[in-house]
């Protein structure tokens, strides 16, 4: 279904591209919002990525690879948004906890706040690997290919990101245990 639309869009059919965009846009937003941790920035990144994809579409040789190809463009657009806005150390708008699937019961409000702060301390490149690996469920080599980085780089970024997040969670757990012992 995608393939024919891609071919039509490669021929300059804007209607076909619009249909394609609506088929893949939600997933693009889900990726971008998890990388950027800001809905407005994520929407801007998706918009930029889709426009660039249209301009470059004729260079895509395998229509069946449209979505992975688009995700690579999207990742770069996320990097660009992150750099352009330079709002990482400022008070970003906290994402609404309830997404399409609603909040996960495993997470408490404190967990969410803790992880949000820890996640923002990661580089945008580290977040991208985390999202493609943990959220989309891609293997590390698949995530590396999707982002356009060497596998070793992806492994390194993932390792550091996970270690940082775990450290935050563990530190919080130790603090909680200490408080319980004191109580």
């Amino acid at each position: 279904m995608h393939d024919e639309l891609v071919r039509q869009a490669q021929g300059g059919d804007a209607e076909a591209f619009d249909t394609l965009a609506r088929m893949v846009g939600d997933r693009c937003l889900a990726i971008a919002v998890r990388i950027l941790r800001d809905l407005d920035l994520a929407e801007d990144a998706v918009q930029s990525a889709l426009i660039l994809a249209w301009a470059e579409l004729r260079a895509l040789r395998d229509p069946s690879r449209f979505e992975p190809w688009l995700h690579r463009i999207l990742t770069r657009a996320c990097y660009a948004e992150a750099r352009r806005r330079k709002r990482w150390s400022e008070g970003l708008r906290i994402l609404p906890a309830a997404g399409a699937y609603g909040p996960d019961d495993y997470l408490t409000v404190d967990d969410r706040d803790l992880l949000e702060r820890a996640f923002r301390r990661l580089t945008v490149q580290q977040r991208a690997v985390l999202v493609f690996h943990h959220y989309l469920g891609l293997s590390i080599p698949e995530a590396a290919e999707r982002i356009g980085i060497p596998v070793g780089t992806a492994k390194s970024r993932l390792h550091h990101a996970i270690r940082a997040l775990r450290a935050s969670v563990d530190a919080d757990a130790r603090g909680t245990a200490s408080q319980e012992r004191l109580a």
Binding site: V33, A42, E43, G99, A100, Y106, L107, R112, L165
Partner: peptide
Amino acid sequence: RLIGAFLSEGEERLDDQVYDAVR
């Protein structure tokens, strides 16, 4: 599991205005 749960949350629907702007 906490990290997985954290990443599972968040917006997953692109606003129609973005599609319109792209078009």
